[in-house]
Simulated scan of single mutants.
Amino acid sequence: MARPRGQKHPVRLSVSLDEKDHAVISRLAADMNLSAAWVVRRAVSEFVARHDDGAQSELPLSKRASKEYR
Rank of each mutant, 00 (worst) to 15 (best):
V24S: 05
A37H: 12
Y69L: 08
E46S: 10
A37Y: 03
A23Y: 01
A65H: 07
K63A: 09
Y69F: 14
V44C: 06
D31T: 03
S14M: 06
P10R: 09
A23M: 03
K20S: 13
V44M: 12
H22P: 00
W38R: 15
M1P: 07
S16R: 07
Y69D: 15
R50D: 04
A49H: 07
A65N: 06
S16N: 11
L61I: 03
D21A: 15
R41D: 09
W38N: 04
K20W: 08
R41T: 06
A30E: 14
S26G: 10
A37D: 15
H22W: 06
E46A: 10
D31H: 05
V40W: 01
R3D: 08
M1E: 09
P4M: 00
S45L: 11
D21R: 14
H9D: 13
S35T: 08
S14W: 08
D31V: 03
S26M: 04
S57R: 05
A55Y: 01
R50S: 03
G6S: 03
L34G: 06
R5P: 12
E46T: 07
R3C: 05
M32N: 15
G6R: 01
K63I: 07
D52G: 11
L59D: 05
A30I: 01
S35N: 06
N33C: 06
R70L: 13
S26T: 13
R41K: 12
V24E: 14
A29W: 02
K67R: 15
N33L: 02
E68Q: 15
K63R: 12
A2I: 07
P10C: 01
L59H: 06
L34R: 15
R41F: 00
R50V: 02
L61P: 03
H22Y: 07
V15I: 11
S57C: 13
V40T: 09
R70P: 07
W38K: 15
A43M: 11
R12M: 14
H22L: 08
R70Y: 10
S26W: 00
H9V: 15
L59Y: 12
R42H: 10
A65Q: 08
E68N: 12
P60K: 00
R12W: 08
S14D: 07
M32E: 12
E46K: 12
R50H: 06
D52Y: 04
E68Y: 12
D53V: 00
E58T: 11
